[in-house]
Design a protein around this nucleic acid. Structure first.
Lengths: 340, 340
DNA sequence: TTGTAGGCGTTATCAC
DNA sequence: GTGATAACGCCTACAA
């Protein structure tokens, strides 16, 4: 492998001159630049990133921490798309993206410590689910910029984070039904222990208020996000004396059980009951009927988080930011367009 | 940040002595080792990986190449699990895992070239879908060990790969039905342009032959893997005069449409027609009915590929290997246990 | 505009 | 056992 010395020799210049052309230093004559460029090409030279790292004290690397054991934090296609967005900007900056599992332990310390102490990372992106004050303290003490994907829960300290605009998403779902002359809009799977869920619910309530609709507590069902939870919650709803004409599912998996419950009761979707869920995962498209969703642009979420991270890297003293990605509605078979 | 010099000074020894203790060199007295260890602890010292990289000419990094644009290669949860397995091994070896998208282009070259030329990777794991002779040539010329995830298609050269034992999986599916006294076993979604699909079909045929069952061409339906493909293929099958009593779906998505077609025809699952698909994705569990599958241990696939890669790194001249991960059956609602 | 030389933090080769 | 010292490949004052 050719080194900078070989190039210098071949071009008949000094190593500093080669270094200058590599780094686009303007104080260099175009004649010598050409000579160097020619030599570089001939020797198929490329700077050794490890040497540059050492010299510049920059690992040119960003870390994405995943909480793999915890399916909830970065599950399946969600994670995939997020990573795709992150990857895009990281390599554009000529950095590398390293991925590691939060729970990995090596040399008696967790990966994050290990990466920081080994000076292997210039910044970290991590899901809000794993953020706690200890982790924050560590990152801050070591001057490692970081961005949370997802709004962090219960956090006194201000940090940088990017999330879906969940409140707006909840509002969007409710407004969609209202625009379509639905009046008894249920919200199932409410779980106030989760920020994103709470936000969606807030948006739902807000939309109702803005349209002078009564907020009916019996149309709000608390519960988890499994398909069985969805089934049970919908059953509960259908046992009430006055039925909803539309349902918002707080999360995507529960919608499958909810749909099943409606079908079993003999009611039809979307005529009797219209239904909307969140996330535009593959699942929404393969069900019978296909599920209308508030479409979450997860790629964009990843992209923006990485962009924010580089802003922090490039301008150290920057103020904390919160960034919300907007959503849009994707109409499928559980709703019907009937705007008049 | 403390460097090796600081430690040497604090311990009252030379840098070489510190280096020796770090690297567990046996030629060192336990007295001085203690001194050094103490200094290391006090200064919270950790070797700078970038400096080690330069000195040892080892990036301590493995690359996982993903073909993100092509959903088929590493889609969704499949990819997630594979990466999990890889990650496990890589960090155990105190390496880092970097992930990059095949299609990323920077400085007019693709990531792989960029990573190789920058000496940033010691080995590569990549999906068989992106393997061609040009890529292989490049990796071999640069002495970068690599492992393919998935059996490569149409390849003269021998390379290292790890895959699910798809032939065995197909055999398993068919044998399962045979053991349950099914005799008219259909195979839908056959697509001989894909290795994994072909292998599953081979296994299916093999099982029939071994049980002296007639192989009936009208029970084999060619087609793609969308839910609509599955629906159409099943419809075709149901239009035949003699119906199958069981169906093997060559891939997982098509099973959803196939089930739908059976339900619409008024036949019951699994009584009239029993059905098995592949991959144990989330999808199999959330459908009504839940889908029995030949369970693919994707985590293990990732784990083994990384292990193989490290074998290659540690023993350069090693012969090419092919590794098959075995599968097992996961019975859900589309089949019923009736072993007698 | 270019070249020389020292430094980044390690490891490895020699002496002692 | 231990300690100088060169080397890894690059960058960057500083000098010319």
């Amino acid at each position: 492998m050719a080194s900078i010395k070989d190039v210098a020799k071949a071009a008949g210049v000094s190593v500093s001159t080669v270094s200058r052309t590599i780094n686009d230093n303007p104080f260099i004559s175009s004649a010598t630049r050409e000579k160097v460029l020619k030599a570089i090409k001939e020797l198929n030279y490329s700077p050794n990133r490890m040497a540059q790292s050492l010299s510049n004290n920059n690992s040119y690397t960003i870390t994405l921490i995943v909480d793999i054991e915890n399916e909830k934090s970065f599950y399946n296609s969600f994670f995939y798309e997020v990573m795709h967005g992150i990857e895009k900007v990281v390599y554009q900056k000529e950095y590398c993206l390293i991925v590691s599992n939060l729970n990995t332990v090596l040399k008696n310390e967790n990966v994050l410590d290990w990466l920081i102490k080994g000076r292997r990372t210039e910044g970290v992106i991590l899901p809000s689910s794993i953020i706690d004050s200890k982790t924050i303290k560590k990152l801050k003490e070591n001057n490692i910029p970081f961005v949370s994907i997802g709004e962090p829960e219960n956090l006194r300290e201000t940090i940088n984070w990017v999330d879906i605009n969940n409140r707006k998403a909840g509002e969007q779902a409710a407004n969609y039904f209202i625009d379509n002359h639905r009046r008894k809009i249920a919200f199932i799977g409410y779980d106030d222990s989760k920020v994103f869920n709470r936000r969606r619910f807030e948006g739902y309530k807000l939309a109702l208020e803005n349209n002078e609709l009564n907020y009916e507590t019996n149309l709000v069902i608390k519960g988890g996000n499994s398909k069985n939870d969805g089934f049970r919650m919908m059953k509960d709803l259908l046992n009430e004396k006055d039925l909803p004409d539309s349902v918002i599912c707080a999360d995507n998996l529960m919608s499958i059980g909810a749909i099943r419950a409606i079908q079993e009761s003999g009611l039809s979707i979307p005529e009797d009951i219209s239904l909307i869920s969140f996330d535009n995962s593959q699942i929404a498209e393969i069900m019978y009927p296909t599920i209308s969703t508030i479409n979450v642009d997860v790629y964009e979420l990843g992209l923006q988080s990485a962009k924010l991270l580089f802003e922090l890297i490039e301008n150290p003293g920057k103020r904390e930011q919160e960034l919300l990605i907007s959503t849009n509605i994707e109409e499928r078979e559980t709703t019907e367009q009937e705007h008049q």
